[in-house]
Amino acid sequence: MIVRQAGFAISIAALGGTTDAAAAFATPFTLAAFAAMVAMVAALVLLPAKPSQNVASS
């Protein structure tokens, strides 16, 4: 809960308390969403491949 409040306080400070809040948050939100997608792709690329299990039938 404290992290959420700190994030909200930092965003208000960064945006300067603008009156049009929706428009002010659009650019930072878009950049954050893009960064999250890049991080997700990087994580998927960097994950090691799942080892295949060859089960011999007897």
Rank of each mutant, 00 (worst) to 15 (best):
M1Q: 09
M1N: 05
M1F: 09
I2A: 14
I2H: 10
I2C: 02
V3T: 13
V3D: 13
V3I: 11
V3L: 12
V3Q: 12
V3Y: 07
R4H: 05
R4P: 00
R4G: 03
Q5T: 10
Q5N: 13
Q5R: 13
Q5H: 12
A6Y: 05
A6M: 13
G7E: 03
F8N: 03
A9Q: 13
A9E: 12
I10S: 07
S11M: 15
S11K: 07
I12R: 09
I12F: 04
A13S: 14
A13R: 15
A13C: 05
A13Y: 10
A13V: 12
A14P: 01
L15N: 07
G16Q: 08
G16A: 05
G16L: 02
G16S: 05
G17N: 10
G17M: 09
T18I: 06
T18N: 06
T19V: 10
D20N: 15
D20T: 09
D20Y: 08
D20C: 02
A21C: 02
A21I: 15
A21K: 15
A21V: 15
A22T: 13
A22K: 14
A22L: 11
A23G: 02
A23D: 11
F25P: 00
A26E: 08
T27M: 08
T27H: 01
P28Y: 03
P28Q: 06
P28F: 02
F29A: 13
F29G: 00
T30W: 00
L31D: 02
A32E: 01
A32W: 03
A32N: 03
A33Q: 06
F34E: 04
F34R: 05
F34G: 01
A35T: 07
M37R: 08
M37D: 04
V38A: 12
V38C: 04
V38Q: 03
A39R: 11
A39Y: 06
M40A: 14
M40E: 06
M40W: 07
V41W: 05
V41M: 10
V41D: 01
V41I: 15
V41A: 14
V41P: 00
A42K: 05
A42F: 04
A42Q: 03
A43R: 14
A43M: 12
L44T: 02
L44D: 04
L46N: 11
L46S: 12
L46I: 08
L46V: 08
L46T: 11
L46F: 09
L46Y: 04
L47G: 00
L47R: 15
L47V: 07
P48T: 06
P48N: 03
A49W: 10
A49K: 13
A49I: 04
A49F: 11
A49T: 09
K50L: 09
K50Y: 04
K50Q: 08
P51C: 03
P51H: 04
P51D: 03
S52H: 09
S52M: 11
S52V: 14
Q53C: 01
Q53P: 00
Q53R: 14
N54T: 12
N54G: 00
V55I: 15
V55S: 05
V55Y: 10
V55D: 02
V55C: 00
V55M: 05
A56W: 06
A56E: 11
A56Y: 05
A56Q: 10
A56I: 12
S57K: 11
S57Q: 11
S58C: 00
S58F: 13
S58K: 08
